[in-house]
Design a protein around this nucleic acid. Structure first.
Lengths: 140, 140
DNA sequence: GTGCCTGCAAACTCTTTGCAATCCT
DNA sequence: AGGATTGCAAAGAGTTTGCAGGCAC
């Protein structure tokens, strides 16, 4: 069904449905959150010829279409994930690097307050918190 | 006084106090939040010969010493700022790119809750929210 | 004097761009 | 057929590393 909506969204704009675009969208859905390089790897398991350049261009396109979004976590690379029901807040551990998701409802009160006091509309799907996860806290 | 603590921290580790290190720390303090390149520019106004490499190495060192921290905002480059009283949460507008600071107390309740429910200790000095600022919301 | 630091240049990673060939519609 | 799309290679940002000379201590 995501393929259907992809095809429709593309057609609306006079763009084309290609195997690469289907595979890349599928990879983002399957992987949860992932960097362009991780998406590339995943896609290559199915279709070896797909170029990293195409991954970048397609992720940008999918973002314009509103099918995926990206967030900047700790290091350099952005991570992409699907748009939709499963939006989440990232908890990124600065020690071990792992990233877990929590229900965005947790930050809703803060988002509401910032909208009231500052007029700033927080994008709840893009929130990341850095810090220390439970395991790493125990070790130190 | 920050110079004093810099000197002490360095000496404790057998490291040396150099003009570059003083200038770079000062630049971070003066600039608020800034990228390595911005720090480099600021430092160069006082001492033209300082190399960008040194800026990178020194920022990393200052972070180890606990004098500065960095956050990843929207695009590629990280932004550094001093550690201390003036910690703040960043509100980054995805439309115009501006970044404003708010009192971290705003997210304290969320941080507390995440510590309770997940054991995750949020680093309040590193929080960034993406979204739309008041001005950009009006325009659309 | 010792060895930490710096500057320079080159290497590296991640991402973008130009262009000709290819493929969707 | 016709123009969007891809792959390849090269160019670009941003960052890191190696090494020889210089400087803090």
């Amino acid at each position: 069904m995501s393929d259907t909506s992809l095809a429709e969204l593309l057609r609306e704009r006079g763009l084309r449905l290609t195997p690469q675009r289907q595979l890349i969208l599928e990879a983002v859905h399957d992987l949860g959150h992932s960097t362009p390089e991780q998406v590339h790897h995943q896609v290559r398991e199915r279709a070896a010829g797909v170029n990293i350049t195409t991954v970048y261009r397609t992720l940008e396109l999918l973002e314009e279409l509103g099918l995926v979004t990206h967030t900047h976590l700790s290091h350099g690379s952005p991570t992409y994930h699907r748009v939709g029901e499963h939006e989440h807040v990232h908890l990124v551990c600065r020690s071990c690097g792992t990233s877990t998701g929590v229900d965005p409802a947790v930050v809703q009160p803060v988002a509401d307050r910032l909208l009231d006091t500052r007029g700033f509309q927080v994008d709840i799907g893009h929130v990341s918190f850095f810090g220390l996860c439970a395991e790493c806290r125990e070790q130190s």
